[in-house]
Every structure is written in structure tokens, then in C-alpha cells.
């Protein structure tokens, strides 16, 4: 009994520690400027205001950055999921020499610190004439999201019984047909996990965006907001918090929609033994 209470207390303490900064972000974003630095601080704002949000949307480049981030993350996710799905299928289903070595090498690239890769990648992208574009970031993010995505999907793929595909082939499907009718629906939880991982990674990435993109047209939210609101002399706390809240919204929406898929469909009883 005491153990249970202690465990619950611990769990709630942990939740609080994680949730408080988020709460503070939300609260700060709706406080008027003069209330921000008051001592003692007010927990709930005395006056509620949305002036920071309006200011951000109307008077800054925020929407432009936001749009860039959406395009960037969505494109990266689509590319990574498409390549990783087909790659994982190949690594699991086809037997060829060096298959395991290949899988291991792919993982090895993920182990390299990204800082090591940033300069060679920058130089290559400059030579390709892609510097300062969203495309350059899509390529960069794909290079480091793909290895992990491939491994994630490979383990999901390995969990799909080969008999299912054989059955579809005997039933008259082509290999592609069997892939679409039988493999993809079974792989859905894996695809969603991978998509979430990639989307979050591209949405939050900062370092590559800072180095590879230096123009407002192509800047994503992370570097855009920093550039706009944080300078050596001043930090626009209210605007920063409002921007942070709006940056979190897409992720919250995506999670709310997809989290049920993440656990659904595991170990569905189509195959016995």
C-alpha cells in the first residue's frame, strides 16, 4: 500500500516536472508584457491577452516560417517513409549476398555525430546549387532520418508472417499487389511510428537549419523564431512563448490523431502457431 502511494507520488512528481515548463509557456504567452517580470510571479495571468499572438501573425514572418516548416517536415516524412518501407521490404524478404552487412552499415551511418556530417553536406549542397533552399534541408534530414526509419520498419516488417504474402501470391496477386493488399495494412502501425519520428525530428531540427539556410524565404520555424525574437540585446519573451505554443500545436494535433494507430493492430490474430 505504502509502496503504491510512494510510486504514485513519484510518478506525479515526474509528470509535474515535465508539464510545468509547458504550462509556464502557455501562461506566459497570454500575460501582458508588464505582468511578466512581477515579483512574486502570478501563477495565472491577472489580465488575459492575445496581443502577442496577433502581433506575431500580423507583424512578423512567423506564418512564412510556419509554412516552410510544414512543407519541409511533410516532404521529408513522405520521402523517408516511402524509401524506408521499400528498403525494409527488400532487407527482410529478398535474399541476397551482403544483406545483413548492408543493414548494419546503414545503422552505422546513424551512429556518426551529425556535427561531423554537417560541413561535407553543406559543401555538397552548395556544389549542387541547392544552398539556401528548403530542398537542401529535405535532403539533409532524409540522410539522418532514413537509417533509423529503415531499422524501425525492418523490425516491423520482420514481424509480418511470410505466409501471408505467399497466400496472396497463390490467390492470384502480383508481388506488388500482395505488398499493397497484405503487407502495407499490416505495416501501418510501423509506418505511423516511423512517420511520427521523422516528422518530429524535422520539425524540431535546429543545427542543420542554422548552417544550411540563411535566407528568410527558406527558413523553418526553429531558426526563424530564434533569429527574429532573440538578439544579443533583447529576448522578446512574450512573442517567443506565443511562437512556441503555436509551434507545438501541429505536433499535438498529429499525435492526437495517430496515437491510437500506434498501439492498434499489433499481433492481430490472422496467423496461428
Amino acid at each position: 500500500m505504502i509502496r503504491k502511494i510512494a510510486f504514485n507520488l513519484f510518478a506525479w512528481a515526474l509528470v509535474l516536472a515535465v508539464a510545468f515548463p509547458l504550462f509556464w509557456m502557455l501562461v506566459t504567452s497570454v500575460k501582458p508584457q508588464f505582468e511578466l517580470f512581477r515579483r512574486p510571479p502570478t501563477i495565472l495571468p491577472e489580465t488575459w491577452t492575445f496581443e502577442h499572438y496577433i502581433g506575431l501573425l500580423k507583424e512578423t514572418n512567423f506564418l512564412n516560417y510556419f509554412w516552410n516548416s510544414i512543407i519541409l517536415s511533410t516532404t521529408t516524412t513522405l520521402i523517408v517513409v516511402a524509401i524506408a518501407t521499400i528498403g525494409a521490404y527488400s532487407l527482410v524478404r529478398f535474399k541476397y549476398r551482403g544483406r545483413e552487412t548492408l543493414a548494419f552499415l546503414v545503422l552505422f551511418t546513424y551512429l556518426l555525430p551529425s556535427v561531423v556530417l554537417i560541413l561535407p553536406l553543406y559543401l555538397m549542397l552548395v556544389q549542387l546549387g541547392l544552398s539556401n533552399t528548403i530542398t537542401s534541408l529535405v535532403i539533409a534530414y532524409t540522410t539522418f532520418a532514413l537509417p533509423y526509419a529503415l531499422w524501425l520498419l525492418r523490425s516491423f516488417m520482420a514481424g509480418i508472417p511470410e505466409d501471408l504474402e505467399s497466400a496472396a501470391l497463390v490467390d492470384g496477386a502480383t508481388r506488388l499487389g500482395a505488398f499493397r493488399d497484405v503487407i502495407l495494412p499490416q505495416l501501418l502501425p510501423g509506418i505511423i511510428s516511423t512517420a511520427l519520428f521523422t516528422f518530429i525530428l524535422s520539425w524540431n531540427e535546429y543545427l542543420f537549419a542554422l548552417v544550411l539556410v540563411n535566407s528568410d524565404e527558406a527558413r523553418p520555424l526553429t531558426t526563424g523564431v530564434m533569429n527574429m525574437l532573440v538578439s544579443s540585446f533583447n529576448i522578446e519573451w512574450s512573442l517567443l512563448m506565443a511562437a512556441s505554443v503555436m509551434m507545438s500545436v501541429p505536433l499535438i494535433i498529429v499525435f492526437a490523431f495517430l496515437q491510437s494507430y500506434l498501439t492498434r493492430g499489433f499481433g492481430a490474430g490472422g496467423v496461428k502457431g
Binding site: 508472417p161 505466409d163 501471408l164 505467399s166 497466400a167 496472396a168 493488399d181 497484405v182 495494412p185 499490416q186 493492430g265 492481430a268 490474430g269 490472422g270 496467423v271 496461428k272 502457431g273
Partner: peptide
Amino acid sequence: QSYALYPH
């Protein structure tokens, strides 16, 4: 042997 029914 595993029946290989399509679960979905």
C-alpha cells in the same frame, strides 16, 4: 499450416 488469413 499457419492458415495465413489476412488479419485486416
